[in-house]
């Protein structure tokens, strides 16, 4: 059977939403971080799908850009997370709320 392109789009939308949901329901920074990655990959899926639907190679090349950027982000992000949670027992994001109001 052929899977219509729109199904992929729906899937990626679902993945994106799932990532977003994970981002604002979980409190562990690392899991939030992973949720973010999930969102980015959902985007990648969208790009690829559109690329196929449009018959345009450009969309697929874009994915590489995104992947590279995401990798860079991971490096920096983990670095910061490590720096801040080195002295703490948990990695709960809610602890980070000196600033509010």
């Amino acid at each position: 059977m052929t899977v219509p392109g729109s199904w992929y789009l729906v899937l990626s939308a679902l993945l994106f939403s799932l990532g977003a949901l994970g981002f604002f329901t979980r409190r562990n920074v690392l899991i939030m971080f992973m949720s973010m990655e999930l969102m980015l990959n959902a985007v990648n899926l969208t790009f690829v799908t559109f690329s196929r639907m449009l018959g345009d190679i450009g969309g697929q090349t874009l994915v590489f850009f995104v992947l590279v950027v995401a990798a860079a982000e991971v490096v920096v992000g983990l670095g910061i997370i490590v720096a801040i949670f080195r002295r703490r027992s948990s990695a709960t994001a809610d602890d980070l709320s000196i600033f509010r109001g």
């Binding site: 977003a20 981002f23 604002f24 329901t25 979980r26 409190r27 939030m32 994001a93 809610d94 980070l96 709320s97 000196i98 600033f99 509010r100 109001g101």
Partner: peptide, 17 residues
């Protein structure tokens, strides 16, 4: 309104959403 500014990342993300 400033109570909305809870200091929690997840809340902010929620507001963005």
């Amino acid at each position: 309104v400033r109570k909305v500014q809870s200091g929690y990342i997840r809340n902010y993300a929620l507001y963005i959403t």
